[in-house]
Design a protein around this nucleic acid. Structure first.
Length: 591
DNA sequence: CCCCCCCC
C-alpha cells in the first residue's frame, strides 16, 4: 500500500524543496475556525508513509470534509510557520487538494510514519526516504488498537478525570499534561533486573504517576515529552507507594502492552500548567530538613559538574552546585544531580524555577537539592519569572546577599562556630558521624615539607594517588587506567597554634595553595628540580596567620582513637569579624 | 517489576 503515497514528500516540502503534486494520507482531521464562509478549514495529521506532520491546515469547500485515512493529492500548498505557546511551529498550508482514494476504502494508517520534528527537518540532508538512523526518532508508538484517540475523543467527547481513576475500572481515557519525566533507570535485584522510567500526569482534577518498565520504557521514553498533552488509556492502576510517591493521588499506574498513548493534537489550554507555591529564599531558613518546596531564584553562580563515587552506595554521582538569589536578598546553594546537572546552562544568570526541591542542611547552613521528582525550568514564561529578572537586572545584581548556606560549624546549636584549639580538645569534638566543624584563628608554627606532595591521577575530577609503575607509566586504581603523566597534589601536614595550644592538621591542595601562594604543580616541579628551593616554599609559610575552618573526626589508628583534623577552608583573617568574636568573649567573661 | 534521591 505504501506505493500509493509519495514517500518522503512531506520531509522534502518542509525542507523547502520543490515537490510535484504529492500523494499523502490524512490520518486525523479536526475542523477549526475559518475566516471565510466560502471555505472550511481543518487541522490535519498527514503522512507520506515515511514521515508525518501533525500540523497541516487543509482548506476545503464547505460541507465536504475529508474522511480519515483518505489519500489526497496536494495541488497547491505552502509551508509556513506560526507561533504558539511552545514557540515557533512549522505548518503546511494546503490550499488546493483532491481526494484520490476515500478513507473508508483504506481504513488503516499506511506504513509507520515518523513524526517530523524541527531536528529531522534540519538534519536530514538526503532527499531520499531514510532507512534507519542511529538516533531514534520521536514517533507515535504502535498500539494494539488502530482507532485514534484524537479521533474518537473528538467524536464522543468522553474523558475521564485523573482523580476518578481506580483499579476497578479499565475503560477510561484521560487527557493530561506530562509535568515531569524521570531519566531512564536500570535496576538489578534478587527478583530480576530491567529498566524503567516514570512520568507525572496532570489534568484539572488532579495528578498521577505513571511508570513504564523494560520494553514499554523503550517504546515510550522518547515519545513522551514534558509539558505536552496526551490522551492516555488502559494503564494498570495500583495503590500508590506513599513512601516514594508524593503526588496527591491514592493510586499510581503502569504502562502495559494494551496501553494507548497519543499526543493530543489540540492542546487548547484547558489542561492546566504546573502551579507553583513559591517560598521566598529567606523563608527557607525556617523550613525543616526534608521539606519539599517550590522555589524561584536567579542563578548567580554555578560550579562545574563534579563526579565522585558515593561511599554508601558505590554509585558514580554527578552534581553541580548553583547559587540562587531572590528579592529577599538571600542566597542559597542548590545541588543538581545527574542529567539535571549535566544539562544545566548558567549563561546569562537564568531564572531557575523548581517544583519540589528538598531542603537540606550542611555544616549548619541550609541548602536545596533536587530529587528525581523535582521539576526544573529555566526562564519559564510566568509573571514571577519576569518580575525577578527585572529586579535582578536593575538592582539585585548589586545587592549584598545573606547566604543561608554559609557553614557555621559548631557541635551544638548553642555553640559558636569559633573555638580555641584547647576548646577543641576539651569539648571532645569529632565523635559525631559526619565530624564536627569549627573555625579558629591560628598561626602556622611548622610545615612538614616531607611527603607534602603526591603524584595524582591526571584525570580532572580524580585526585587519587597513582602507582609509579617505574616504566614511565602511572596507574590509577580508582580509574583502573594507566597514564604516561600525572599531576602534583598537596596534602600538607602542619602544626598550627593559638593562645591556648597547638594542633597538627592536614591541608589539601586547594587550601594549601592559598597558604603557600603557589600551585601544587609549581611546587612539585620546583621540588623535583631543586629540593632546597622547594623546601623554602613550605618554610615561607611559617608564622603566617589565617582563619582555619576545620573538620574534626575521631579515627582509628593502630587500634588507637585519635583526633584527625582536616582544614576544609583557609581564609585571610577578617579582623572586623574576629574582633567581634573577641568582644563577645570578653562580654561573656564580664557577666 | 522501581523505591536510589546522594557529596562536602
Amino acid at each position: 500500500m505504501k506505493d500509493k503515497l509519495t514517500a518522503g514528500a512531506l520531509l522534502r516540502i518542509m525542507k523547502g524543496q520543490e515537490v510535484e503534486e504529492p500523494l499523502v494520507q490524512v490520518l486525523v482531521s479536526k475542523k477549526i475556525s475559518s475566516r471565510s464562509a466560502e471555505t472550511e478549514r481543518y487541522r490535519i495529521w498527514a503522512s507520506d508513509g515515511d514521515y508525518s506532520i501533525t500540523y497541516g491546515i487543509l482548506t476545503l469547500p464547505p460541507g465536504k470534509p475529508v474522511e480519515d485515512f483518505s489519500i489526497i493529492k496536494l495541488k497547491k500548498f505552502v509551508k509556513s510557520e506560526i507561533s504558539n505557546a511552545k514557540g515557533p511551529q512549522k505548518i503546511l498550508l494546503i490550499i488546493d487538494s483532491e481526494i484520490v482514494t476515500p478513507g473508508h476504502q483504506i481504513g488503516v494508517k499506511i506504513g509507520e510514519p515518523v513524526t517530523l520534528t524541527d531536528e529531522i527537518i534540519a538534519s536530514e540532508t538526503s532527499s531520499t526516504p531514510k532507512v534507519s538512523t542511529s538516533e531514534p526518532p520521536v514517533k507515535q508508538p504502535k498500539s494494539e488498537q488502530s482507532t485514534s484517540l484524537n479521533q474518537s475523543i473528538s467524536e464522543t467527547r468522553v474523558l475521564n478525570q485523573i482523580n476518578a481513576l481506580t483499579p476497578y475500572h479499565n475503560k477510561w481515557v484521560i487527557k493530561a499534561r506530562v509535568t515531569n519525566k524521570s531519566d531512564m533507570r536500570t535496576w538489578s535485584n534478587s527478583r530480576g533486573e530491567g529498566k524503567l522510567f516514570s512520568f507525572d500526569l496532570m489534568d484539572d482534577s488532579g495528578e498521577i504517576r505513571c511508570t513504564a518498565f523494560r520494553d514499554m520504557a523503550d517504546k515510550y521514553f522518547n515519545y513522551l515529552q514534558v509539558d505536552k498533552v496526551y490522551y492516555i488509556s488502559k494503564c494498570q492502576l495500583k495503590a500508590a507507594n506513599k513512601q516514594f510517591n508524593t503526588l496527591k493521588n491514592e493510586y499510581e499506574m503502569t504502562i502495559g502492552n494494551e496501553t494507548i498513548i497519543e499526543e493530543c493534537l489540540t492542546d487548547d489550554g484547558h489542561v492546566p500548567q504546573v502551579k507553583y507555591n513559591f517560598v521566598p529564599i529567606s523563608a527557607l531558613a525556617e523550613k525543616e530538613v526534608g521539606n519539599l518546596v517550590d522555589v524561584i531564584g536567579i542563578c548567580k553562580e554555578a560550579s562545574e559538574v563534579q563526579t565522585f563515587t558515593s561511599k554508601s552506595t558505590n554509585r558514580e554521582l554527578r552534581k553541580r552546585e548553583i547559587t540562587l538569589v531572590d528579592q529577599s536578598k538571600t542566597s542559597i546553594a542548590l545541588t543538581l544531580w545527574g542529567s539535571q546537572a549535566d544539562s544545566f546552562d548558567a549563561t546569562n544568570n537564568p531564572v531557575v524555577v523548581i517544583k519540589g526541591a528538598k531542603v537540606g542542611e550542611f555544616g549548619g547552613g541550609k541548602n536545596l537539592s533536587t530529587l528525581m521528582s523535582s521539576q526544573i525550568k529555566l526562564n519559564p514564561d510566568i509573571p514571577e519569572c519576569h518580575r525577578i529578572k527585572g529586579w535582578y537586572d536593575s538592582e539585585g545584581q548589586y545587592d549584598a546577599m545573606t547566604n543561608l548556606s554559609e557553614r557555621v560549624g559548631g557541635v551544638g546549636s548553642f555553640q559558636t562556630a569559633w573555638m580555641s584549639l584547647k576548646e577543641v580538645q576539651d569539648k571532645g569534638l569529632g565523635h559525631s558521624e559526619k565530624g564536627d566543624y569549627f573555625q579558629v584563628k591560628a598561626t602556622i608554627l611548622l610545615v612538614r615539607s616531607e611527603n607534602a606532595l603526591y603524584k595524582a591521577c591526571p584525570t580532572d575530577d580524580c585526585n587519587k594517588k597513582v602507582v609509579d609503575l617505574e616504566n614511565g607509566m602511572y596507574r590509577c586504581e580508582k580509574c583502573c587506567r594507566e597514564f604516561p603523566n600525572f599531576k602534583y597534589r598537596l596534602l600538607v601536614s602542619m602544626n598550627i597554634g593559638d593562645f591556648s595550644g597547638n594542633q597538627w592538621v592536614s591541608v589539601f591542595s586547594s587550601e594549601a595553595e592559598k597558604i603557600l601562594g603557589k600551585t601544587a604543580q609549581e611546587i612539585g616541579l620546583t621540588m623535583r628540580d631543586d629540593s632546597e628551593a622547594g623546601t623554602a616554599i613550605f618554610q615561607a609559610a611559617n608564622f603566617k596567620q589565617f582563619i582555619f575552618k576545620c573538620r574534626a573526626k575521631m579515627e582509628n589508628y593502630n587500634d588507637e582513637q585519635r583526633l584527625k583534623i582536616v582544614v576544609v577552608k583557609v581564609d585571610p583573617v577578617n579582623y572586623e569579624e574576629y574582633n567581634g568574636y573577641l568582644c563577645e568573649q570578653i562580654e561573656a567573661l564580664m557577666v
